[in-house]
Simulated assay, not measured.
Amino acid sequence: MQQLGLSDHQAARQVGARIVSQLGFAALQHVIAATRFFPEVPTLTELGIGGVELGNWFGIFAPASTPKSIISRLSVEVATALGAPEVKQRFQELGAETVVQDAETFRKTIADETKVVSKLIRERNIVAD
């Protein structure tokens, strides 16, 4: 799901306060958070906008010059922290799940989602006001 960079929990508060409007989910299927926070909101596919499947994710970035040994250590430590039962439980309470990706997979996720969003912006002539 993608809600202007907000977590589902944050987005629910913003939508509830009528600060933003929820138009649709950029996912093929309703996921846990969508069903919990926005059961009435369709997916973009259900709205006739296919090929837009995005996730709501958070990541840790480091300068390109960071040694691979440091990146590997960071990856292990973050994976360990995210694997802790209490952390997984808290994420679940917020309607999210913990998914750990190695640096290369995460890099590919960003590149793939950038292509999808860029194409959608071009095809739909989306502009910022």
Rank of each mutant, 00 (worst) to 15 (best):
H30P: 04
A33T: 07
I32W: 00
S65D: 15
L54D: 06
A79W: 01
T66F: 00
P42E: 05
L44W: 09
I19Q: 15
L23H: 06
T35P: 00
R90G: 04
R73Y: 05
E46K: 04
V15S: 01
A62I: 04
Q22I: 01
A62W: 02
I70R: 14
F37K: 13
Q92R: 15
V52E: 04
Q92N: 14
G95P: 03
G83W: 02
L94F: 09
A81D: 09
S65T: 08
R90H: 09
I32V: 03
F25M: 10
H30W: 13
I32A: 13
L28I: 04
I60D: 05
Q10K: 08
S65H: 07
S75H: 03
F38L: 02
P42T: 10
A79V: 00
H30I: 10
I19N: 11
P85Q: 14
V15E: 10
L23F: 06
E77P: 02
E97F: 01
T80A: 13
R13N: 12
A34K: 07
I32K: 12
A27H: 13
V87N: 10
G24M: 06
H30A: 11
K68P: 02
L94V: 01
A11Y: 08
A84M: 06
G55D: 05
A26Q: 00
F91S: 01
I71K: 11
A12I: 08
N56C: 12
G50L: 08
V76F: 14
Q14S: 12
G55K: 06
A26G: 08
E97M: 01
Q29I: 10
Q22H: 13
R13Q: 15
A79C: 09
G24C: 01
V20S: 09
I32C: 00
Q29E: 14
G95A: 08
V78W: 03
A11M: 08
P63V: 10
L74E: 05
G24D: 04
I71L: 15
V20I: 13
Q89P: 02
P63F: 10
A79P: 03
H9S: 10
A11C: 12
A84H: 14
K68I: 11
V87Q: 05
S21P: 05
E86M: 13
A81I: 13
A26K: 00
F58S: 14
V41N: 05
Q14E: 14
G55Q: 01
E93H: 05
L28G: 15
Q14W: 09
I19E: 06
P85I: 08
E93G: 06
L82Q: 08
